[in-house]
Design a protein around this nucleic acid. Structure first.
Lengths: 236, 236
DNA sequence: CGGTACGTTGAGTCATATCAACCATAGTGG
DNA sequence: CCACTATGGTTGATATGACTCAACGTACCG
């Protein structure tokens, strides 16, 4: 049946629709990419790579959501970022030529293209517009990391949780009923905010009492984003 | 008198001795750099640029130390990193084409070269080895930022302080008597660790009681780095 | 139907922030 | 030369945010 056929995305299409990174590639380069890439599918819970691994390529996400995290003390995860369609992951390790400093695990079933390191390096060397685009990406992520450091160091857990909720709204959006389009376990939320699972639970139900959110299982409904903004102290 | 003459560093020399970033430039490119750069000197406390500024170039540090920080709630600084001879700063804003997300202030009197944005961009476009080197740098910093996020989120202040001391030893070294070659105020230390000044003071004197360090004013003598390592939980 | 993973709540503890007072030092200006 | 002020360092007392531990509820799954 048609619906069971796997549709392997073409990079030309991919680059136009979702991914700014590849938009400066020539047709020829795009064809090489198409030829060399390896299409893969993963299910929730699958691990793409782990901290410490030497990585032989990077991933371009076509559908689904992946969490990128570091494992700290006692195996507690610290989620660094999420990757969604159009994002690339593991490019850091490839380019800096260091072992992976993070692990990547699937949150929502996904389809990705795996692209060997050599292709990335050779594109950087031959296509300066592409190199510049990658630099922009890395530098932008660096800026976000810096903000996050400041937040974790200076804000309370309450402020951070509110901020993270808004950030998730921004990254993944809301459905028609204002439910967040990404669903995370309480533990995962805690591992972004950098706190204990119990703290997230308590704060979320406080937020619920204050009519800022509504909760039904893992789904979070945003009722008052202005209120969350106020709590999060984003502007001050 | 000779000692009062200002010695403007030549980039060829600079690139060979201190700065891996520029080592792939051609002679011609180095000459352009030498011609276009602006040599500047700053004193402790001087501000090179501030958060929110549009920046028209980046800085290559020839001597001295600069702190790069974000201003958070109530104006409290979060120190993101230090720049020392051979390092470059502000390249992030130039490349991502965003306003500065940090400020830079002089900790130890310094001499720097200011290099206009156009030069950086054009070098990236024409010299792929240079672009790759920059990418490596950005990706490496990104890796460090990720580690720092995990640390701040998961470690105690005590652990972090011990870790930061070791990190400073690593970056700036010790003199003949094992004193750290960088001297910071207690407040600055607190602003790296992400804690209150009083906490740093208390913990430092604990460390002193435990014969891990010795203190004389702003100078910190490292007496037992194995002990600090143990406290910092670097390996676990 | 038992098992496993996740969610929730309560109680107690502790690390750390906050507030306040005080000291030391150095630079300034009258 | 001395009072004056600013800046940084130190210490103590107190408050509290957030973690830990423990028990229990819930839901889904084979």
């Amino acid at each position: 049946m048609k619906q069971h056929e796997v549709h392997i995305p073409f990079c030309e299409k991919c680059s136009l629709e979702t991914n700014a990174i590849f938009r400066h590639l020539t047709l020829e380069e795009t064809e090489t990419l198409n030829f060399e890439k390896d299409f893969r599918q993963y299910k929730r819970g699958d691990v793409l790579y782990q901290e410490g691994n030497r990585i032989s390529g990077f991933y371009c996400i076509n559908s689904g959501i992946i969490k990128v995290y570091k494992t700290g003390l006692d195996g507690k995860e610290q989620i660094i970022r999420f990757a969604k369609p159009g994002d690339i992951i593991a490019y850091r390790s490839v380019l800096s030529n260091e072992p992976a400093c993070t692990s990547a695990k699937v949150i929502e079933d996904c389809q990705v293209c795996f692209i060997p390191s050599e292709i990335l390096i050779s594109l950087v060397k031959t296509n300066s517009a592409f190199a510049l685009e990658l630099l922009k990406l890395a530098c932008h992520e660096l800026g976000e990391a810096n903000s996050f450091i400041t937040d974790i160091a200076q804000k309370t857990v309450r402020e951070r949780l509110a901020e993270i909720l808004l950030l998730l709204v921004n990254d993944f959006g809301l459905d028609e009923q204002n439910y967040l389009r990404i669903s995370l376990t309480r533990e995962e939320l805690a591992n972004i905010v950098g706190t204990a699972t119990e703290s997230v639970i308590r704060l979320l139900s406080e937020f619920k009492s204050d009519r800022l959110v509504d909760l039904s299982g893992r789904k979070i409904k945003i009722m008052n984003s202005k209120g969350l903004e106020k709590i999060s102290n984003v502007f001050s």
